[in-house]
Design a protein around this nucleic acid. Sequence first.
RNA 1: GCGGGUGUAGCUCAAUGGUAGAGCGUCGGCUUCCCAAGCCGAAUACGAGGGUUCGAUUCCCUUCACCCGCUCCA
Length: 543
Amino acid sequence: MPAEAAPSKRMADIVSLCKRRGFLFPSSEIYGGLNGFWDYGPLGVELKRNIKEAWWRDMVTTHNELIAPAGAPSAYEMVGLDATIIMHPQVWKCSGHYDLFHDYMVDCRESKKRYRYDQVRGRWVEYRGERVFIATMAEAGEEEEETLRRALKYFKLRPRDAGELHWDGPFLTLPQVQDLSRVLGPDAQTVGTLTEPREFNLMFKTYVGALSGEENVAFLRPETAQGIFVNFKNVLDSTRVRIPFGIAQIGKSFRNEITPRYFTFRSREFEQMEIEFFCHPQSSADWYRYWRDRRMEWYRQLGLSGERLRLREHSPEELSHYSTGTADIEYAFPFLPAGEFGELEGIAHRGDFDLRSHMEGKLDPKTRPLQLELDAEGKPRWRGSGKDLSYRDELTGERYIPHVIEPSAGADRAALAFLCEAYQEDQAPDEHGVPQQRIVLRLHPRLAPFKAAVFPLVKKDGMPEIAQRIYGELKKRMLVFYDEKGAIGRRYRRQDEIGTPYCITVDGQTLVDQTVTIRDRDSLRQWRVKIDDCCDELERLIG
RNA sequence: GCGGGUGUAGCUCAAUGGUAGAGCGUCGGCUUCCCAAGCCGAAUACGAGGGUUCGAUUCCCUUCACCCGCUCCA
């Protein structure tokens, strides 16, 4: 193995290749680009399509509902869905995204930290005529001690002088404080460093209809999952599926990320590949384990087999309150510091939180068992649809609200991981047998943009005509590339750099015995096959 | 959002207060060759806006984008 380049260098090389070869471009680049948005070029779109198609094929179309796959508790059904990007605003209120993605934040000019407006708490204190609101982010049990400590420090007093401080009133949250100029920020030394609260809306807002007003505000979906939940009953009523079954969806989602970063890793517009798998509460834990392992295996089989891929089970503290299990499939992207991993996919046991929230109204995820979230007047914070989203088992007569296992993958992150994993610089001999550096994308043949390239060895003796005929035949079955320009070695290298797994070359012997060579990208091995067998051979190799 | 860095051809880089060079790549031609670098030729660039100046790619300001460190991360 050649020594790996430094992470940032390696990532820069990958970004450069993506640009050079047409995998990825900055969005609207001629106008200077747009932060958090990326376009897929001619090769990138093929790669991403192949990823999505592999996922859809493996999860949906080739799934046999008559047989329990290895590791699955039972056989199950899978169907697809394609919901809209803009949905009824109430969807996001009941899903929790509206509250969660709709924060007011204050910034501290001194500490450069940012806080959620409603999470900053503190209390008024007075000392020798100066009245200051000591703010803190400390935990509930520690806030008393913390504010005392910081008040003493602010007034330059010793602990034994604590009695001279006059505390005024109970703990308040920042929204209850009128004048931010007298607030000592949670990490500040001087007062009045907090900015006025500013709205941070992580959902993209738009308006339905020609008139814009608060009446017809809508949001671009921040996840595809909700389209599945709100169609749960439609799917049940129209397809005869029975639990356990899954609904799969691929589609764009939008999040107004505060800090888009790391190439396409954290983009504001991105594509998700999600399954909501509905099952009986009693078997949900088994299904969770099945999906977790199944999804991990999917990445492995498509080439993320090394130790850069890992499965990380969330610790109990990390879990949503209603979830009994969540695992992330993570990849050690080269742009991350050594030892750090970035999420490719999350597999979450979501219980009945989503269906019940859309049924009864938004549930409070902090309650257990889950209860309706109430507003200050004791009324439901967000009303549900009121529709019955429970399921009746026709055989047993049992009626229940299914539990949900959610494998949620990022298509762009997968594309990026496959690119990073595939990118290698190795040595290949030149025409004099001298090793030369070679850039090669060792993409899995299923994912490679071009499955093969077809070359005439030289541009004479009828070789181009034969090669073009082969190209025409292959083109009917797969994406292939034709090239007759320049030295043969150079043509091989060009294909190596874009991950084409096989090259078919028409040479002198072809004219004699109607065979061509097939050259393997990774081993550089060549063998001969009959022209007529070319296509079958390739399809066998690609699998 | 804060701090630091960067921005010149498709890519990687260079030079310069008097409008820019190279390597690779690309295209055309020669070569007809099984793993890029043999020959000839060609095209293509100062992120955007403003200011200073006789003149700005160069200096200043603003802005945008990318990278690094914070912050955020459902």
